[in-house]
Simulated scan of single mutants.
Amino acid sequence: MTAQTAETRAVEAANQAFYDAVETSDLDALENIVLTGPLAESVSVVHPGWPVLRGRGEVMRSYALIMASTDYIQFFLTDVEVAVDGDTALVTCTENILTGGPAEDDGSAGSLVGGLVVATNVFRRTSAGWRLWVHHGSPVLAEQEEGDEGEDGPEEPAL
């Protein structure tokens, strides 16, 4: 295994640990994944539809709020691409998200809703391993059907 392959796998594992922590509402696990130290105030997140949040404290509060108000969330990651350069790694992916409300009175699953978000995650290498520095998620508002391109190229999604 080459060093690049080992680093790529380590970044992929850190990326998956981030999504696992959010899925399981494990704030302690998320605390271990998000960057600390001298760059903690430069940590940032853009949740779909939210403004930019800056600083580790603000970012962690946002995840605590999301976890407290989300009964069920599951991520199926596709189109994952990893690039490593020195102590920084970039991950792009599509988050295929399934969320749901509380369970019904009879114990059956509540209503489920699916959505697509394209995400960019930036990781920083630390002495403790790869840590999340930046997360930016943007909702996919429209899917491009084959043959929908006009003479001037693809149509813009409706807002």
Rank of each mutant, 00 (worst) to 15 (best):
E41H: 05
A89S: 11
Q74H: 09
V82A: 13
G107P: 00
V52H: 08
A83R: 15
H135M: 07
S25Y: 06
V45M: 02
S138M: 14
L77K: 01
L98A: 07
R54I: 02
P157I: 08
V113A: 15
D106S: 10
S44G: 01
V11I: 10
E149F: 14
S69G: 01
Y72N: 01
E12D: 06
A17Y: 12
A13N: 10
A83S: 15
T120Y: 13
T92N: 07
R131F: 03
D85M: 13
E146G: 08
G150H: 13
N121K: 07
G86P: 00
L159C: 08
E149Q: 14
I33C: 02
L39M: 11
G49M: 14
P38G: 11
V82N: 05
H47I: 06
C93A: 14
D105M: 11
L141K: 05
V22K: 03
S111R: 12
V80G: 07
G86E: 03
T94A: 13
A10K: 12
N32K: 14
D105N: 10
Q144K: 12
T8K: 11
R124T: 13
A3S: 12
G86R: 04
M60L: 09
L112A: 06
D106Y: 12
S138T: 12
L141R: 11
E145N: 08
I33E: 00
A17W: 11
P51G: 08
A21C: 02
L141S: 11
S62D: 01
W50M: 12
T2G: 09
V117A: 14
D79H: 15
G49C: 06
V91F: 08
F123V: 08
A142R: 04
T2L: 02
L35S: 01
V45P: 00
R56C: 00
I97G: 01
A17T: 05
E145D: 07
V117W: 06
T8W: 04
P139G: 05
H47C: 02
R124Y: 06
V118R: 15
L77Q: 02
V117T: 03
T78R: 10
A3H: 10
N96G: 08
T78I: 06
V52M: 10
F76H: 06
D152P: 00
L159S: 07
G147W: 10
V34I: 05
E31M: 09
L132E: 01
N96S: 14
T120A: 14
E151I: 15
E7R: 15
L35N: 02
H47T: 04
G101D: 03
Y72E: 00
E31V: 08
W130D: 02
S42F: 14
L53F: 02
V22D: 01
V52N: 04
G114Y: 07
D28P: 00
D148P: 00
E31C: 09
Q16C: 05
A10T: 07
